[in-house]
Amino acid sequence: METRVTATQHRQTEPARATLGGDTQSRKEQVALALFILVPFAAVLAAVPVAWGGWLGWTDVAIAVFMYFLTCGGVTVGYHRYFTHKSFKPNRPVKIALAIIGSMAVQGPLVRWVADHRKHHKFSDRDGDPHSPWKYGESIPALWKGMWHAHIGWLFDEEQTPQHKYAPDLMKDRDLIWVSKTFWLWVLLSLALPAVIGGLVTWSWQGAATAFFWGSLVRVGLLHHVTWSINSICHTIGERPFLSRDKSANVWWLAIPSMGESWHNLHHADPTCARHGVLPGQLDASARIIWLLEKAGWVSDVRWPVKERIEARLAA
């Protein structure tokens, strides 16, 4: 006997949509995205005159630095090394914390971010890569255009990466669906927290305002462009000591602000490795955080570098 499946039953068998948007970006989403890029960037441009005018104190510096590295770690350790590449296994509280802190970096809902990055690895620097700087060719004009696309332009592509195809594991996890759906809550928390801390520490509205400027706007703007530089700069210039099928490269001067993500060549040569800076002198703060979490017993099955595996990937 033939079994008929109704539309309602079919929808019930599909995983719930895990972000605020679908596989096509709406005009409203593009406008919101532009605001969340332009406003923090304007704050970065205004940072020098604002500081020169005396609107920067040690409380602001401490809050901004703390929030920067907290949310940067949420992206590098959480969004990237765990949720995208499964470099380790966390317990449930750490998993949820990493998802929330990564969301506070204001770089998009978790599931969408992971889907984009997995597609990037599948097609790295080839047709299908969402953000390759080599998209338009290898001439100087084409490369400048490609770097702009890799840095920011790709974010406004109307066609989004299919989440069901590239992140089906995340879409089966109710915790991660909840965090992804409530992305705007974590954005508001991320923007409000510096002001609240600054106001309480200084007990003044001015302290809240300057902490918001430095710890929210400037911090988000800087983190945006450091993260996007991995897409644009680290696929264009730098050293390539390891064999990979793309143009991923190491850029040493981005290592500290990116918490080790700019050792990008090894990452593309061995994507699931929990440490990206594997050569002597390569600082990798994200790997150190994973190491501390492992020592605390909160994560397990960490995929640390294996000497033979690393040596096999070294270029001749």
Rank of each mutant, 00 (worst) to 15 (best):
Q282W: 02
D301P: 08
K95R: 14
P40F: 01
V187P: 01
P15Q: 09
D301E: 11
W178A: 06
L70V: 15
V77Y: 03
W184C: 14
M1R: 15
F83S: 02
K172P: 02
W291M: 12
F83Q: 14
L200I: 13
R219A: 05
T6P: 15
A150M: 09
A99I: 00
G146H: 11
Q107P: 05
A312V: 08
A99T: 07
V94M: 10
G221N: 06
I233K: 08
I100W: 00
W55N: 15
A167T: 01
G137V: 10
R4N: 06
K122S: 09
D301S: 12
V106P: 02
Y79S: 12
L33S: 14
R219N: 07
D127Q: 09
A209P: 09
I256C: 04
E294V: 11
S204R: 07
G54A: 07
T210A: 08
V111E: 02
H267I: 13
Q282S: 15
E14K: 04
I63F: 00
P40C: 05
Y136M: 14
Q107D: 15
R313Y: 10
A208R: 11
R219D: 03
R4V: 13
G54P: 02
K95V: 06
E311W: 12
T84I: 02
R126K: 09
E29D: 10
L45K: 12
L38R: 02
I100T: 02
L176Q: 07
T272W: 10
E308H: 11
V39K: 04
H224F: 06
T3D: 06
W148D: 08
W58T: 08
A99H: 15
L38A: 10
H151T: 03
R11I: 01
F88H: 12
Y82I: 02
T8L: 07
E158M: 12
A315W: 06
K145L: 07
R303A: 10
R174E: 14
V220T: 05
F66Y: 15
R313F: 10
D284E: 05
R288S: 15
I37F: 15
W148S: 05
H276T: 05
A208P: 00
H120L: 11
D246P: 03
W144N: 10
L20S: 13
V48D: 02
G78A: 07
P241M: 09
D175C: 06
P271F: 05
F123R: 13
L176K: 10
E29F: 09
H267S: 01
I177R: 00
S216D: 03
A274E: 02
D157K: 08
P15N: 09
S229E: 03
L314K: 08
I237R: 09
A315C: 15
N265T: 10
I197W: 01
T3V: 07
S244E: 14
V201C: 05
F88V: 03
V278C: 11
W214V: 07
Q206Y: 07
R118F: 03
F123A: 08
H120M: 07
P241G: 04
G54E: 04
G297S: 12
L45G: 09
W203I: 08
L293Q: 05
E2G: 13
A209N: 05
R81M: 00
V48W: 13
V94W: 12
P141D: 07
G221E: 01
L33G: 05
A312Y: 14
G74F: 00
E308K: 12
A115G: 01
E159G: 15
T71S: 14
A249W: 01
D157I: 10
A167K: 00
R219W: 02
V187W: 01
A34V: 00
T19Q: 01
G281L: 11
K181G: 07
